[in-house]
């Protein structure tokens, strides 16, 4: 879990760690942001991303309540999604993910890896979000093929990404090392629609 609170360090010479996401706003991206609002891109790198592997048909899988290719949003605001046939992700604030995780039965829960640091997460929203994604990804984003709640993986601007259509926005996640590049690619794709960066 991300821990940005001050730590009680035994060695007083060492500073408390500062968490940094992979996405740095560069002149390349900020120069494209005209506040037009057709597409809004928000770095959600501070969200906790917990990956679980569960056996099919197990109590744990049932409690997660999603199948491969779908997602739901819990009352505490956590996005739970089935991104691979036996692979589930919990995405949200540290506290809410911890809470959801604590409520899961142990039966069928094979393994878990906290990939908060490993994944860049960009939230894409705005009236032209779909139009922008169609410029960087070969998936069919129509409501029939990628409805609200849909979850899948695909190449986005030539980077392997997970894509979840959560509520009114899309969550796009990639390996952290590609984060800066992905942000710049999405910003460039969005520029014809008017781009807003950040909340």
């Amino acid at each position: 879990m991300v821990n940005t609170t001050d730590l009680d360090l035994t060695n007083s010479g060492v500073e408390a760690p500062t968490y940094r996401t992979s996405v740095v706003v560069t002149p390349a991206t900020s120069g494209l942001a005209d506040g037009g609002g057709g597409v809004a891109l928000v770095d959600r790198g501070d969200h906790t991303k917990l990956m679980l592997r569960c056996d099919a048909g197990s109590a744990a899988a049932a409690a997660l309540g999603v199948s491969f290719g779908s997602s739901r949003i819990t009352d505490s605001g956590v996005v739970i999604t089935g991104l691979r046939p036996d692979e589930y992700w919990l995405i949200g604030t540290a506290e809410s993910v911890t809470g959801e995780r604590a409520g899961l039965p142990a039966d069928g829960l094979r393994s878990e890896v906290d990939l908060t640091h490993g994944r860049t997460l960009i939230e894409v929203s705005g009236p032209k979000a779909t139009g922008m994604l169609e410029k960087v990804c070969g998936l069919d984003f129509s409501d029939a093929m990628t409805p609200r709640g849909a979850a899948t993986s695909a190449s986005v601007a030539k980077v392997s990404c997970d894509i979840v259509r959560a509520g009114d926005s899309y969550l796009v996640a990639c390996d952290r090392s590609f984060g800066q590049y992905l942000m710049e690619s999405l910003a460039d794709a969005a520029r014809e629609f008017g781009l807003t960066l950040g909340d």
């Binding site: 491969f68 691979r84 046939p85 899948t152 993986s153 695909a154 190449s155 392997s160």
Partner: peptide, 8 residues
Amino acid sequence: YCRSGCRR
């Protein structure tokens, strides 16, 4: 191999 998708 479904490399960009389900990785199966």
